[in-house]
Simulated assay, not measured.
Amino acid sequence: MKNILLACSAGMSTSLLVKKMEEVAVSRGIEVNIWAVAQDKAPSEMEKADVLLIGPQMRFMKKKFSVVAEQVGIPLDVIDPMAYGRVDGGAVLDKALELIGE
């Protein structure tokens, strides 16, 4: 089971993306736990995650989150703006799995 954390400004804009990612994972037979949180909750949630993906509107937070991600030993990246805008669950799931090393 892979744990994928998404972070955005308020935790709301990524909720649809989470649903799309879950649908793709089910169709591919991949066991994942995907959840989204607001930026202020991301540091504490990182301890439960295998990877953190940040909404493109928060790319300026990458450096701050990198410090915590390094401490807990997880990779992180910014979600591709095109995939985010299209709510492309498959592309975002693929990126998360790639970062985890799957």
Rank of each mutant, 00 (worst) to 15 (best):
K95A: 09
K63R: 09
E22L: 08
G89Q: 00
I34T: 11
V26F: 02
R86K: 10
A42K: 13
K64H: 15
A96D: 10
V92P: 00
D80V: 02
V37M: 09
K95W: 03
D88N: 09
I100T: 08
V32C: 05
L6W: 07
G11F: 08
S44Y: 06
A69H: 09
Y84G: 00
K95E: 12
E70F: 10
V68H: 12
K2R: 11
A83L: 02
A38P: 06
S27T: 05
V67G: 03
A96K: 11
G55M: 07
I30Y: 06
Y84R: 00
M58V: 06
K63G: 05
K20V: 01
A83I: 05
R59K: 13
Q71A: 11
N3I: 02
G90K: 07
G85R: 06
S13V: 07
A38G: 14
C8T: 13
D94I: 09
V37Q: 10
E102Y: 03
Q57H: 15
K63A: 09
A69W: 15
L97F: 10
P43Q: 11
N33Y: 09
E98M: 07
Y84M: 00
M12V: 15
N3Y: 11
D40N: 14
S13Q: 10
A38S: 14
G101W: 03
M61E: 15
D50K: 14
E45M: 13
A7T: 15
L99A: 04
K95I: 07
D40R: 13
E31A: 11
L99D: 06
E47L: 15
E102A: 08
K95T: 10
I34N: 07
V32T: 10
L93T: 06
S66I: 09
P56I: 01
K95P: 03
R59Y: 01
M58K: 02
R86Q: 10
T14W: 02
V24I: 01
R28Y: 01
G90S: 04
R86Y: 06
A83F: 00
K19F: 05
A49T: 10
S27I: 00
S13H: 09
I100R: 09
A42F: 12
P75F: 03
P43S: 11
G29A: 08
W35L: 05
G11T: 11
E47A: 15
E23A: 08
A36L: 06
Q39S: 14
D77K: 06
M82Y: 03
I4N: 01
G29N: 02
V78C: 04
P56W: 05
D50E: 14
A83K: 01
A83G: 05
P56T: 07
L76R: 13
P81D: 00
K20G: 00
A7Y: 03
D50F: 14
R59I: 07
F65I: 12
G85F: 01
L76V: 14
V68M: 15
A69K: 15
I100V: 14
V51F: 07
D50C: 10
V92L: 05
G101H: 02
D88H: 02
I74R: 10
M1W: 08
L93C: 11
D88F: 01
A69E: 13
V32Y: 04
S27D: 07
V26M: 00
D77C: 05
